[in-house]
Design a binder for these strands. Structure first.
Lengths: 330, 330
DNA sequence: GTGAAAGCGCTAACAC
DNA sequence: GTGTTAGCGCTTTCAC
């Protein structure tokens, strides 16, 4: 930001006034402009390699054209794809996105929310770590910044998600129909709605067959937590299937099963939830994980659209059951 | 951005002047301020839920405190970790980062570079897709925006990288010492310095034993390209080792080997380059991939530091050879 | 069709 | 110690 030419340099060089330059810049052709004037200005802009100072435009218009994204873990492909979905819409609408990775820490999350507020983003797409910081959120809402949640619910805020309850119910039903009966569940943290919905769906599916989960272990959606949950669950007698609240934990469970020499799907059925597609490493998995596909990229697009179009509604997108090979007839 | 209180509202409510509020905001305590005054202001700020308008500060200071990041693929954990490294430094120094994912398209890359310029970022950390767009880059440099490359070189621009040549040489030597002789190489695109350095290191290591590569196939650092390169290379007779310019392509090669029922490391040695650590899925790989660890997070940190401290130097960080199980004594 | 001038919210001299 | 004031670069009425 130095030795930089400003709008008056351009005006001077083109021999016109500031307003004329501004009009060219903003395509304000309501009062038709003489083409040659326009050309002169354009030439001056090119000659001077002029670019408007965004801050000045923003200050004047009181619009930043920026969107914030807050996710718990950007190294998780699931959230990367979400960000890409959001960005695909934002970019074509002239919005810039600020991606914030709270790294599963709510303190960090609060810092980022405050930061986004002071950056005056026009909207925030938010995937809270757990129970979000009410104060920061209120301050944001107070200021008139719109917030859309993705894949998580908070009372009174619009959400873009899938029907986790129904999908989990369906998955559990599928697994039960394959003959598995002693089902353990690796759940998400209690303060994450998504996880609770999935747990409820599973429980109700089991209940409909007169069953209850053999064990419920609380994980935190990480590979490691899935692994250690599975280790402890597998020491309980008679578990014949482990379902997890997301794929990452299911992978952890598979790892544990492998170490304990449990054969999947014969000794043990395993299923996840999410199905992040196109993970190259995952193609090494034989068999492929049984899971539910969540259209995360599209969830991101919908969320961005809601923000940009200033709509205040919640949306649910459909899921798809992936009949992988980690659950099979016994 | 509505019904928002500004600095004069705060001043009025606290019964002080604008400058006093500004001083509190900016911790300008050079002329000691009466603590009670400070308190009054702080209270007013809290009461009004006041937050300064960033655009106004930026305009006044002519500093955006923003950094841009441009990477070819944000779904690649390698670049995600790079971004995290950058962010870790940026955040603690009060900088905001704009992450741009060019998605391997140079057109997109150019758009993002232009966007970052018009956002007036103070510096850009850049991993070009291939040969970067000279025009956009020149415009950026012209404007006094500093650019640091990571893991890639462009003449006259500072770079933070590892010694790819030496590391690749060392890896190849290691593989040759294990007894492999008929080495094929899955290279990167010709216009990426990193890949060329690695290729040169490998070639020279082979040459030092009087050997040449049995085949060289050009990939583009994706899993798919590694897979198809390996398929074609393995149809050549007598290949006993495939090295790839990055891990992702090596994974693709492993996949191909598996399909062709080649036993690794017995029939075929495989090695990669990068070693993105902590990929959960990768723990399913038995054996672990032989590769070179590149400290990408630290590269990011160094790059951010160079930008923020306005230093104009290039830096090389050390690598580490990972003796995985995909290459072994024959 | 084009120009002049006010002011977006804030910071930093400079007064007092 | 605290207040007054002049812009930062731009957009946008309102004149002409």
């Amino acid at each position: 930001m130095k030795k930089r030419s400003d709008i008056r340099d351009v005006a001077a060089r083109a021999g016109v006034s500031l307003s004329t330059v501004s009009r060219v810049l903003n395509d304000r052709t309501e009062n038709h402009m003489r083409p040659e004037t326009r050309e002169k200005v354009l030439k001056a802009i090119r000659d001077l390699n002029y670019a408007p100072v965004k801050a000045a435009q923003t200050l004047r218009r009181l619009r930043t054209k920026m969107l914030g994204i807050v996710v718990p873990d950007i190294t998780n492909l699931y959230f990367t794809l979400l960000a890409r979905g959001i960005e695909s819409i934002a970019f074509e609408q002239g919005f810039t996105t600020l991606i914030c990775d709270s790294n599963h820490q709510s303190e960090r999350e609060t810092q980022y929310l405050d930061m986004l507020r002071s950056e005056d983003v026009e909207g925030i797409i938010f995937v809270p770590v757990g129970k979000a910081d009410g104060n920061s959120l209120d301050a944001i809402l107070d200021q008139g910044i719109r917030v859309v949640l993705v894949d998580r619910r908070i009372p009174n805020l619009p959400t873009v998600e899938v029907d986790n309850y129904a999908a989990s119910f369906g998955l559990a039903e599928y697994v039960l129909n394959l003959g598995y009966r002693k089902v353990a569940y690796i759940a998400g943290p209690e303060d994450v709605s998504t996880g609770e919905d999935r747990l409820a769906g599973l429980s109700d599916a089991l209940a409909s067959k007169g069953l209850t989960p053999v064990a419920i272990c609380r994980g935190d959606f990480t590979f490691e937590s899935g692994y250690s949950c599975a280790l402890s669950v597998l020491s309980e007698t008679g578990v014949d299937a482990i379902l997890a609240a997301n794929d990452l934990m299911a992978f952890g469970a598979l790892r544990a099963a492998e170490e304990l020499k449990k054969s999947v799907p014969k000794d043990l059925g395993v299923a996840g939830f999410d199905h992040v597609p196109h993970v190259p490493y995952a193609t090494f998995m034989h068999p492929e994980l049984t899971t539910v596909e969540v259209p995360i990229y599209e969830l991101g697009q919908k969320a961005a659209l809601l923000l940009i179009d200033e709509k205040d509604e919640s949306i649910k997108l459909p899921t798809k059951l992936i009949r992988g090979g980690t659950c099979r007839e016994q």
